[in-house]
Amino acid sequence: MKRFFPKASCAAALLALSGCSGWQSALDPKGPAAGELAWLIWFFTALCAAVWMLVMVVLVATLFQRVRTGKDPLVLDLASEHRKMRVVLTAVGVTAAILIGLTLLSFFANRTLAGIGSDEALTVRVIGHQWWWEVRYENAQPSRILTTANEIHIPAGEPVRLLLTSTDVIHSFWVPSLAGKLDLIPGHMNVLDIRADKPGVYRGQCAEFCGAQHANMGTFIIAEPRPQFDAWLDDQLRPAAAPTNAEAKAGADLFLQRPCVMCHRIGGTPAGGTVAPDLTHIASRQTLAAGTLTMSRGNLAAWIADPQGIKPGSHMPVTALNGDELNAIIAYLEGLK
């Protein structure tokens, strides 16, 4: 059987990236944490380059001097040896000063990063799975707790606290335009404070090898003005929309009759699975399968029909459906916005 690796999947990834605020890069900072880290990267790079150039200049000068004098290397000149000793001691002192300076820079950078979330207004729990991200918005009111997947909406210009953990293996959460990497460790909670300076879509990636589909474990942070974020949150807290046409109604019935309900949850329906992404508002997301495909009717059908062809090794099983059944389920899922 021919495996399904559509060329469109590569294009889909590029299209998903093209919607982002800049390329996925630590050198394209869009928040205070990423800005601090980018400054450190450039400073360290410039300083190391200057040290390397200085070492090369001294090495070349020394080699030319030895060739020019033609002296016997076994004959020692006391005055020359003293000069060399002073040069070496000076180099050691400069090296020590550089290392101490870089250590202090790192220390103050960490203090800056730690201060980002001192007044956070939103807490989001991010749970790593093979190979997708569970996203849960914490709230003191149980009715305001929201669970979604792979896309994290945040209010732009406000600090947000991410609580990071994992259910299986070690993952690493990295949205380079907003913050540095931080591991998600089973049984342990790590804290990452982020802030997006401006509205935009910022792509992230698992940065710790976590299995066969590690490379297809992407995420998106979508920063919006506060009114838009509040409206999005209110919409997401509503139960799934009821199907409005015969085909979608048939799809809803099929969904509830098939193994889908064992893994997935759809709010307002008997589907209450917790081991796979929540599908209550799946059609409102930009991508499928943790950034592997862009959201479209065709990609949704391809993913349901042959998940192992698109993402080999994923825990999404193949469900036996004929063409009419597949179209009905797609019609139902397309209405979950």
Rank of each mutant, 00 (worst) to 15 (best):
residue 52 W to M: 13
residue 122 L to K: 03
residue 215 A to C: 00
residue 59 L to R: 05
residue 210 C to E: 12
residue 159 P to C: 00
residue 190 N to E: 13
residue 20 C to P: 03
residue 212 A to Y: 15
residue 311 K to H: 13
residue 117 G to H: 04
residue 263 C to N: 12
residue 306 D to S: 13
residue 154 I to L: 07
residue 187 G to F: 08
residue 31 G to P: 07
residue 81 E to T: 03
residue 78 L to Q: 09
residue 245 N to E: 06
residue 12 A to I: 05
residue 90 T to P: 03
residue 159 P to H: 09
residue 296 S to R: 11
residue 155 P to N: 06
residue 140 A to E: 15
residue 165 T to E: 01
residue 191 V to W: 05
residue 106 S to W: 10
residue 155 P to W: 02
residue 3 R to H: 13
residue 13 A to M: 11
residue 326 L to S: 04
residue 280 T to H: 00
residue 174 W to I: 10
residue 159 P to T: 00
residue 82 H to S: 08
residue 83 R to G: 08
residue 218 G to L: 04
residue 74 L to E: 13
residue 278 D to F: 04
residue 150 N to C: 03
residue 275 V to P: 06
residue 307 P to G: 09
residue 334 E to F: 02
residue 232 W to K: 01
residue 297 R to T: 04
residue 321 L to W: 11
residue 294 T to N: 00
residue 201 V to N: 07
residue 3 R to T: 15
residue 53 M to Y: 11
residue 183 D to I: 05
residue 205 Q to K: 02
residue 231 A to W: 00
residue 63 L to K: 08
residue 96 A to P: 03
residue 96 A to N: 03
residue 74 L to D: 15
residue 54 L to C: 11
residue 172 S to K: 10
residue 102 L to Q: 13
residue 271 A to N: 11
residue 155 P to G: 02
residue 297 R to I: 00
residue 48 C to L: 15
residue 273 G to E: 10
residue 143 S to N: 14
residue 70 G to V: 14
residue 192 L to P: 01
residue 186 P to Q: 01
residue 191 V to K: 08
residue 148 T to H: 04
residue 70 G to M: 04
residue 51 V to L: 12
residue 321 L to M: 14
residue 264 H to L: 08
residue 28 D to G: 10
residue 143 S to A: 13
residue 156 A to T: 00
residue 252 A to Q: 14
residue 112 T to S: 10
residue 8 A to H: 03
residue 295 M to F: 09
residue 259 P to R: 02
residue 293 L to N: 06
residue 162 L to P: 04
residue 44 F to H: 12
residue 302 A to E: 02
residue 206 C to T: 04
residue 162 L to D: 01
residue 196 A to H: 15
residue 207 A to W: 07
residue 209 F to Y: 09
residue 192 L to R: 01
residue 55 V to F: 09
residue 108 F to E: 12
residue 260 C to E: 11
residue 318 V to K: 15
residue 92 V to W: 14
residue 90 T to A: 15
residue 113 L to I: 12
residue 144 R to G: 01
residue 104 L to V: 14
residue 197 D to S: 13
residue 199 P to H: 01
residue 109 A to K: 06
residue 148 T to P: 00
residue 173 F to C: 07
residue 198 K to S: 08
residue 87 V to M: 12
residue 41 I to D: 14
residue 252 A to V: 00
residue 318 V to G: 10
residue 216 N to L: 09
residue 96 A to T: 13
residue 270 P to V: 07
residue 322 N to W: 10
residue 27 L to S: 04
residue 41 I to E: 14
residue 57 V to P: 01
residue 85 M to E: 09
residue 241 A to V: 09
residue 238 R to H: 10
residue 50 A to S: 09
residue 151 E to S: 11
residue 141 Q to H: 13
residue 241 A to D: 14
residue 195 R to I: 11
residue 256 L to G: 15
residue 197 D to R: 05
residue 8 A to F: 03
residue 217 M to K: 10
residue 255 F to Q: 09
residue 253 D to G: 02
residue 232 W to N: 05
residue 316 M to D: 12
residue 159 P to F: 09
residue 55 V to P: 00
residue 220 F to C: 06
residue 49 A to L: 07
residue 277 P to N: 06
residue 22 G to S: 09
residue 148 T to F: 03
residue 310 I to W: 12
residue 21 S to Q: 07
residue 15 L to M: 03
residue 108 F to V: 15
residue 190 N to F: 10
residue 328 A to H: 07
residue 224 E to T: 03
